[in-house]
């Protein structure tokens, strides 16, 4: 464990703590926006982990976001469980979903993997949409709790930033662990990894469950944040949002999801305020990103020497 590594860990903790404290001093509107950015940063990071390290492009990541949201909302609204228990049940539901779907999906690779993940998330979406006796269908689950447990926007923002920072630190820890190296090895060269004694499918399943659980945490936090749950939380739209964030942020950097979420949510908020065509702007940015700097913002920063935390590739491993 190099000095640089320890230093970046302290830096990360300091920045996170600073951000969380800063949340308390913001105006309520900005705090709400920051909360959304933080939640999406976690969601995009979990998908980025799957894509960048596991080599698995998922079209169905929203399934876990939706399961996290509905696991919490159903437990709170329909089962009447105490909120602290419901908050735990959300990510747990997503984790269970990830075990089930992951076990199926890791049997496939490339576009077939993507298609099966899409089918899984559409199953979740359709079930949430159709089982209206339990889920309220299109109308969603609403009015079962005060948004943010009734906390002020600033306090909830600080809480969210802290939780997201912990989750991302956990993800960074995973990436640097032997497990993380195994996930990367399987992502890059499944045959060679198998020859080294890894079970590619098992390693991929573990990666799926980690990513799914983190996405579930994001979903639960979003449901608490809004005080509701809608089937759209498991829809293709959310998956596309996350994919766009990962690509804008950068497909080679660990913090790609974070950068991408910041840019995407801010663009969505401010461009749509100034003029209505924010999707057009995002689309043009995407084309520019892919054609001009395919490694995204994180890669650009790395190229400029501003970030040392980009993904350790084979040659420059820490």
């Amino acid at each position: 464990m190099s000095f640089e590594h320890v230093q970046s860990r302290w830096l990360f903790a300091a920045v996170s703590l600073g951000l969380a404290v800063a949340m308390l001093m913001l105006g309520p509107g900005i705090a709400l926006l920051a909360t959304e950015v933080a939640i999406m940063a976690l969601f995009a990071s979990s998908l980025g982990f799957l894509i960048n390290y596991g080599g698995m492009v998922s079209f169905g990541h929203a399934a876990y976001f939706g399961l996290g949201a509905y696991g919490f909302a159903l437990a709170a609204a329909k089962l009447g469980l105490p909120l602290w228990l419901a908050v735990v049940l959300g990510p747990l539901t997503a984790a269970l979903g990830a075990v089930l779907f992951g076990a199926l999906c890791v049997r496939l690779t490339h576009i077939y993997f993507a298609m099966l993940t899409l089918a899984c998330s559409e199953i979740v979406f359709t079930v949430l949409f159709q089982a209206y006796d339990y889920t309220g269908g299109d109308n969603g689950l609403t009015n079962f709790m005060a948004p943010r447990f009734g906390l002020s926007p600033q306090i909830y923002a600080a809480l969210t930033v802290a939780i997201v920072a912990l989750c991302i630190a956990f993800l960074a820890r995973i990436v640097r662990s032997p497990l993380g190296l195994a996930i990367q090895a399987v992502g890059e060269e499944p045959h060679r990894a198998a020859a080294l004694g890894f079970s590619p499918r098992l390693v991929q399943l573990v990666a799926c469950v980690i990513a799914g659980t983190l996405a579930g945490i994001a979903g639960t936090m979003y449901s608490v944040f809004q005080g509701n749950a809608f089937p759209d939380y498991a829809g293709v739209g959310i998956t596309i949002d996350a994919l766009v964030m990962v690509v804008i942020g950068g497909v080679k950097g660990f913090y790609g999801g974070v950068f991408g979420a910041i840019i995407y949510v801010l663009l969505k908020t401010f461009v749509s305020r100034a003029f209505t065509h924010w999707e057009l702007v995002i689309g043009l940015i995407l084309i520019a990103v892919v054609l001009i700097f395919p490694t995204g913002i994180a890669g650009l920063l790395q190229k400029l020497g501003l970030s040392r935390t980009a993904r350790p590739s084979g040659e420059q491993h820490p």
Binding site: T276, E279, L280, G283, V290
Partner: peptide, 21 residues
């Protein structure tokens, strides 16, 4: 694969906005 997917996704976003406009 991912970059090809993203290029077509970009077209999705652009066309959606153009149609709305």
């Amino acid at each position: 694969d991912l970059l090809q997917l993203i290029i077509t996704l970009a077209l999705v976003l652009i066309l959606r906005d153009v149609v709305k406009a």
